[in-house]
Design a protein around this nucleic acid. Structure first.
Lengths: 253, 253
DNA sequence: ACAAAAATAATCATATTCTATCAATTAATA
DNA sequence: TATTAATTGATAGAATATGATTATTTTTGT
């Protein structure tokens, strides 16, 4: 394997696996250990990875979250955990819709390990997060940019959603209740969420437990839109059972 | 294989494969190693690729990518100056197309002073640059993300362009010549540029003088596509006159 | 804390690629 | 056709990349 191609290959491996070992490189690229080491130290000098004993890891400094405001940090750990859980529902070769909003955003962090994933989204932060990973194909649904929500909306966005079909949709919401279904604080983001759900075979709602049995002002869908809710563990068994009666499965972290 | 065809072939290979080796060229073009090397060094001098040991890789800095590499700094001031000049062609309430690529990118920096501007683009860096300004409405044309070029391409992108009409288009190019018109190093970015120009009433080409009377491998349009070239002052009066004979006006910084 | 195992760094030898020079071939022009 | 210019190829010495060996450092398990 040629030098330059080899180094690109190393970076590609890191995109997929977070870490890479010298031994992997030796067998995959048919090179000696010393050459693998030399490659890694060189790439480290360029700031493209971080050396460890026996291999290297991704350089995380470049993957800081860009775009959201500080109040987006509420419930951050809960959101990260439930996204970790949600990622177990994803398989190699899936095409998935990802809604805008902070909750679904963290799911992007768990995608690089998969093979051949296609992500369809209208969220700018998700696009930026996935930019470094060539193994993930990103389709952005364009439209008019909303500066504060950092996502694209409008009739163009909505009509395009119908044209992109996906295996799974991971959507967010302002609130959900047995009585009223799904509701949102923003009309335009609700309409996009709806289109997304309609264009996917399976629909998963990602929301922390504080949003369950809460209503926002704009009701945009009944409960039948979704099949599964992924949330944190601060939810009572009674509630889980009540939703189960309506044929909605709840997964908790 | 004829010389000129051979060099275009090299660029075509790089457009597809990112890297190319001397040995590939030797076998594919039936030439000696030294000739392959000479071709590569020549193309490097024209800024069309980057030499490596044993071959070459794509050169992003001069073509499309916002990487802010060190060698991109040479032309940076020229580009900023010509974008400053280009901004004088913009008026309040305009709707403008902005092409992807480093040259046009800097134009974004001169937009906040205008009132009620609408920008249509497929370039991610431009969207990020304009994000903080509520007086600028940004329409992103989505599609499939190219990780290295940081812009959106594909048939969806192209077909959407026809639906967004604009007053002015500011486009970039890999090269322009009286003999062959406009040409590019990347087929897919060329097709997007073409659609953009066709959807706008007035078309302005932004390019530094090093690109004038240079051809890249993929010819995508005749000279009639554009009305005005905005470039730096390192261009001879004779050339300006020759373009004027073809009804193309050249503005210099 | 100590010894065994693994990883690294240093050294040198080998193989590949590069540059420079000059010769041969091809194309262009008078 | 002869002459000139441009392009290509061949060769050798220099530069770079890679691999094998051995000594040193770091990690791991007890």
């Amino acid at each position: 394997m040629k030098q330059e191609f080899r180094r690109k290959h190393i970076l590609k491996l890191l995109d997929k696996n977070e870490v890479v070992s010298i031994q992997e490189l030796v067998s995959q690229c048919s090179i000696s250990e010393i050459t693998a080491r030399r490659d890694l130290t060189l790439l480290e000098k360029q700031g493209l990875l971080k050396r460890t004993h026996g291999g290297a890891t991704r350089n995380y400094s470049t993957t800081e979250m860009i775009g959201f405001d500080t109040n987006a940090l509420d419930h951050q750990m809960q959101k990260i955990n439930l996204c970790n859980l949600a990622s177990t529902l994803i398989e190699d070769n899936d095409t998935i819709y990802m809604d805008c909003g902070t909750t679904v955003f963290y799911l992007a962090r768990f995608l690089p390990k998969f093979k051949n994933i296609r992500v369809i989204t209208n969220s700018l932060p998700i696009v930026l997060e996935l930019l470094p990973y060539p193994n993930i194909v990103v389709n952005l649904i364009g439209g008019e940019l909303d500066n504060s929500l950092k996502a694209f909306y409008g009739s163009m966005t909505e009509s395009l959603m119908a044209r992109y079909k996906a295996d799974k949709a991971f959507i967010g919401t302002g609130g959900i209740s047995l009585a009223n279904g799904l509701s949102s604080n923003s009309e335009k983001s609700a309409l996009v969420t709806l289109k997304m759900a309609e264009a996917a075979s399976k629909v998963y709602l990602l929301c922390d437990s504080s949003k369950i049995e809460k209503d926002s002002y704009f009701n945009f869908s009944g409960l039948s839109l979704i099949e599964t809710i992924i949330t944190d563990n601060e939810i009572s068994q009674e509630r889980i059972d009540l939703y189960k009666e309506k044929n909605i499965n709840i997964l908790t972290t």
